[in-house]
Amino acid sequence: MRLRPLQITLWIAAILATAVFAWSRWPAANQVSSEASMAFEPSFALADGEGNLRTSAEFRGKFLLVFFGFTNCPDVCPTTLSDVAQVMDDLGADAGKVQPLFISVDPERDRELGLNDFTAAFHPAIIGLAGTDAETRAAAQSFKIFFEREADPTAPDGYTMSHSPGLFLVGPDGAWLRQFSYGTAAAEILSDLQSRF
């Protein structure tokens, strides 16, 4: 079959467009992958339920399982903390190698409602942290996560919190290791941890 000049022109245009598109995407794709593989050390300095300041430095030597949430949250937070509790139970003798942390993104209200009775209801090993607004923002930034207060007249006190629902794993050297996305099964988190001991 012979191609007419118009067809040939169209084919050349299509090939050129594809090439230009691929070329324009290339640096962006490279940038994303190098960012993702770049090691970083999340850090925080936040008060626990007793009001004592706890810092990321004091947990060196242990794996940290970190969840950002708020105690008024009825669905996502209890589901994730239940998974964390299951992981801690299933770790058995290795439980001492892992410190689960719950960092409040709604610190003022959570301190009023009680941080310790909330975390203890899931598992005694979980430490709840609720700092000042500035400390909380700094902690979230160091984990590269997002949270925001949203006005909602149908929620308690007229607002709710949107937040990154992942569970974050930090290594014994303080370096960020990975995220478990919301809904990751406890068994999967457990086997990932066990592969690192």
């Binding site: 669905d75 996502v76 909602d152 149908t154 929620a155 709710t160 949107s162 990154s164 919301y182």
Partner: peptide, 14 residues
């Protein structure tokens, strides 16, 4: 309510 996870952020629209 509905829990919605979009672009890595969970929110709970009425």
């Amino acid at each position: 309510h509905e829990t919605v996870v979009k672009d890595g952020v969970a929110s709970m629209p009425h």
